[in-house]
């Protein structure tokens, strides 16, 4: 039965993701040499739009583990996915990872409710905060337990039009992009917002309710493509 349920979910998600992907259902970043070719595929794929299927992708994390969005969504018990654009040396990332525990607390709070959280670093090689070594160190320094995916050619970043670190995306269990924008409503460095958009979106999705704020303007450092 578990297998049947999972299959049914896969079918549903695949249908959604196919809408976004068009002819190229997925892009993959499985090796450093794959950049230019995959960049071409990324351009063919539909961009991320709230209310539509989130573009599928495959990326490898700092420990060499490969993740495919559609496969994650198809896992038993997964109710939503959060993507967090990440650069460990950006002051705004530090705001929410070092000076405050915004990301860690939220990821932890929603983990048991079936929310999978991924950080994605689209920094190009040699740019601030990029590379496997720096991000491995950051995972330790910041106590990040969720996967940090490396997107050094920026393909997935461009697909999602990620502008800042952080830039947040919430994808529902059917693979539909439910929220894109800022983590909260305060751009200033020393003050947290009084509205956390990601928390609100996840809370609504898990309650089976409509997400009230589906987009906001992200803030942070520019992504170091």
């Amino acid at each position: 039965m578990a297998r049947m349920n999972r299959t049914g979910k896969i079918t549903s998600i695949a249908a959604s993701l196919a809408l976004a992907a068009g002819a190229a259902l997925t892009i993959g970043v499985t090796s450093a040499s794959a950049g230019p070719e995959h960049a071409h595929h990324a351009q063919e794929q539909a961009k991320a739009v709230v209310g539509h299927a989130a573009p599928d992708f495959t990326l490898t994390d700092i420990n060499g583990v490969e993740f495919t969005l559609s496969a994650v969504l198809a896992e038993e018990g997964v109710n939503a996915v959060v993507l967090e654009w990440f650069n460990p040396d950006c002051p705004f990332v530090k705001k929410h990872h070092v000076h405050n525990q915004t990301m860690k607390s939220l990821a932890s709070k929603f983990e048991e409710k079936g929310v999978r959280w991924f950080a994605i670093n689209s920094g190009a090689e040699g740019k601030q905060g990029a590379g496997i070594d720096r991000n491995k160190l950051a995972a330790t320094e910041y106590g990040i337990e969720y996967p940090i995916l490396l997107d050094s050619y920026g393909e997935v970043g461009h697909l999602y039009e990620a502008r800042t670190t952080p830039h947040m995306y919430v994808i529902d269990s059917e693979g539909v992009l439910a929220y894109a924008g800022a983590i909260d409503n305060n751009q200033m460095m020393r003050t947290l917002g009084d509205t956390n958009y990601v928390e609100d979106a996840l809370t609504a999705l898990l309650a089976g309710e409509a997400v009230e704020t589906t987009t906001s303007r992200s803030y942070g450092c520019g992504v170091k493509y």
Partner: peptide
């Protein structure tokens, strides 16, 4: 004052 200064990277100041 608080500010963010950026070149290739961004740094905070106050």
């Amino acid at each position: 004052f608080e500010l963010l200064a950026c070149k290739e990277a961004c740094v905070f100041g106050a």
